[in-house]
Design a binder for these strands. Structure first.
Length: 578
RNA sequence: UGGGGCGUCGCCAAGUUGGUAAGGCACGGGAUUUUGAUUCCCGCAUUCGUUGGUUCGAGUCCAGCCGCCCCAGCCA
């Protein structure tokens, strides 16, 4: 990881657990975590919290983190997401120790199932999905035992092997854990361990027609990979007793026969008895994060794709120009707890400004041009003015900005009737042209409709840099570009996608679609200095006084520059005006 | 009238074995500033969902209320 904001890691309960484990000498001093996405969608800002936590915590203690694809359900997963997920994790700045799949362990998981059967802890159930639901009971009423719960070990083993052999139809049978149909915890009411799905798997092809359920596969995968701290979100709290139940019965650490297939395949991994720890996922206001809604936004054309800069996806954030370091410090700042919370999107933007102020070079751009002619300069006046690339970092060097008598300034940097407190240009008034000197407005041209079409001004030569009057104070400083030298660029101005802090809240009627801000994307033709246009894609600049803009990852060309506005600068004048 | 979690400043969030409420963001004020940006100062919870109790002393212990979140996929 490169230059990070050194946010002091605040003390949180998971860090404390790791510290305690280390102090107690558990796991031989090892810290191993994993990030286990299901390859069925794009990663978003919420996933980033988990990624930062898992990778960050392990790294902090010299441990390792595996990237493991939780591919136990071939009917809903697709290999197309695998590469995207890998790219996102890498972009965020993390490197996995090993790249693995739950499907790498299918043979091990199968052996685990047989072991449970032999122990009398699992049985093959012939109940249909509907029947299972009926037998399960409700939140307040206990369930009833399946009629197949009493099957003997031999019969279960035979049936399970025949399930694997493909003798039975999809959904006709399951392997279930024999736990407690009356448990208050519904996860313990004889949960399914294996189901029949005669569907080819993206990784194992048609080698299997039975697939393990998440709870079973996940616990085993963690143990088999030597994970020490299995970090997941709050909704899995209820699953922890099952996680422990499985691991306690299997003894993957002590029973070599279970993992023999891995070693035979050349995969020799350390084993462990992992601990599941749950934390609250991070929510952001003014956005939606559920997979279903994200898909709807894309498929219904409300946005321009998964990587639309307004999307909370990591590819979206990337295209928006959010630096990975900003996302990392954002989640570090948000903290890790078990409290459900919603963090303001503006906090993220604050982190973005913080790293960009430090990292981004400065350039000039005018988004809404108003011509300004300097009368006391020759019409063909041409010079080149050196500007520092970064105001606080001389090592970033300088660039040459062409200057002439015909400039373009920002239309709202001039006012015929200035609002109170206005520091910019007014008819007859003075303002500083950044890096040039003080200019006085001597004329205002209007069209037939009375709209201002241009300004004329005189430049006070004494106030040019290096001259005795250069230090003279004026209230305002505005930016400019040379009309003749500026290049036009497409600039995409993005706002938050939703108009409501909680787009998911349907209490006021309608659904999240009704809260989409249709003006959240606007396109402007900007005039930029030459040194802005020549940037590589994904370069972020601060267009002085306007905000941070990133050269579009896909569309930016030297001949046709395209910038996305990442975030505006903080603007206390605009804020006070409201 | 099931089980599991959670309630500390507007938003996040520290608060070790009870000893008299960190920090960040936001906000208000001021200073610097050729970006109304950045930076820099200063201010910002007699109070910890609530009611009682224990104690010399409770955010921290006990009890009762109240509120919010999650669980009835052969999804993860």
């Amino acid at each position: 990881m490169s230059s990070d904001t050194p946010t002091t890691p605040t003390h949180h309960f998971i860090r404390q657990i790791v510290l305690d484990d280390l102090a107690a000498g558990r796991h031989g001093g090892r810290v191993a975590t994993r990030f286990p996405p299901e390859p069925n969608g794009y990663l978003h800002l919420g996933h980033a919290k988990s990624i930062c936590l898992n990778f960050g915590l392990a790294a902090e203690f010299g441990g390792t983190t595996n990237l493991r694809f939780d591919d136990t359900n071939p009917t809903r997963e697709d290999i197309e997401y695998v590469e995207a997920i890998k790219a996102d994790v890498a972009w965020l700045g993390f490197r996995w120790a090993r790249l693995l799949h739950a499907s790498d362990y299918f043979e091990v998981i199968y052996r685990c199932a047989e072991k449970l059967i032999r122990q009398g802890h699992a049985y093959v159930c012939d109940l249909s999905a509907d029947a299972v639901r009926e037998y399960r009971g409700t939140l307040t009423e206990p369930g009833r035992d399946s009629p197949y719960r009493g099957r003997g070990v031999d019969e279960n083993l035979d049936l399970f092997r025949r399930m694997r052999a493909g003798e039975f139809a999809d959904g006709s049978r399951t392997l279930r854990a024999r736990i407690d149909m009356a448990s208050g915890n519904i996860n313990l009411r004889d949960p399914a361990l294996y189901r029949i799905r005669k569907v080819p798997h993206q990784n194992t092809g048609d080698a299997w027609c039975i697939y393990p359920m998440y709870d079973f596969a996940h616990a085993i995968s963690d143990a088999v990979e030597g994970i020490t701290h299995s970090i997941c979100t709050l909704e899995f709290e209820d699953h922890r007793p099952l996680y422990d139940w499985i691991l306690d019965r299997l003894d993957l650490v002590g029973d070599d026969s279970l993992t023999e297939p891995l070693r035979a395949a050349g995969l020799d991994l350390p084993r462990s008895r992992p601990q599941q720890i749950e934390f609250a996922r991070g929510n952001l206001d003014y956005t939606v994060m559920s997979k279903r809604k994200l898909i709807a936004l894309v498929e219904e054309g409300h946005v321009d794709g998964w990587d639309d800069p307004r999307m909370p996806t990591l590819v979206g954030a990337r295209r928006r120009g959010f630096p990975p370091a900003a996302i990392r410090t954002f989640w570090e700042r948000a903290g890790v707890t078990k409290q459900n919370s919603v963090i303001g999107f503006d906090v993220l933007e604050g982190c973005v400004r913080e790293v960009l102020d430090r990292e981004a070079e400065r350039r000039f751009a005018v988004l809404d041009p108003l011509p300004l002619v300097i009368e006391n300069l020759a019409d063909d006046h041409a010079e080149s003015i050196p500007f520092p690339n970064h105001p606080k970092d001389p090592s970033r060097g300088t660039r040459e900005v062409p200057f002439s008598s015909r400039l373009l300034i920002e239309r709202d940097d001039f006012a015929e009737v200035p609002p109170k407190g206005f520091h910019r240009l007014v008819a007859g008034g003075e303002v500083r042209l950044r890096g040039v000197g003080i200019v006085r407005c001597t004329g205002v041209a209007r069209d037939a409709a009375g709209r201002v079409t241009g300004l004329s001004a005189t430049l006070d030569p004494d106030t040019r840099p290096g001259q005795p009057g250069a230090e003279r104070k004026v209230k305002g400083t505005i930016h400019w570009v040379s009309a003749r030298d500026a290049l036009t660029a497409e600039v995409r101005l993005y706002e938050r996608l939703f108009t409501a802090p909680d787009p998911d809240d349907d209490a006021g009627g309608g659904d999240f679609r009704d809260r989409i801000d249709r003006d959240s994307k606007r396109i402007a033709v900007a005039h930029v200095e030459p040194a802005a246009a020549s940037a590589d894609p994904e370069t972020v600049f601060q267009f002085e006084r306007l905000g941070y803009f990133v050269a579009d990852r896909h569309d930016h060309r030297l001949e046709r520059p395209v910038f996305n506005r990442t975030v505006t600068l903080r603007d206390s004048f605009a804020k006070a005006a409201k």
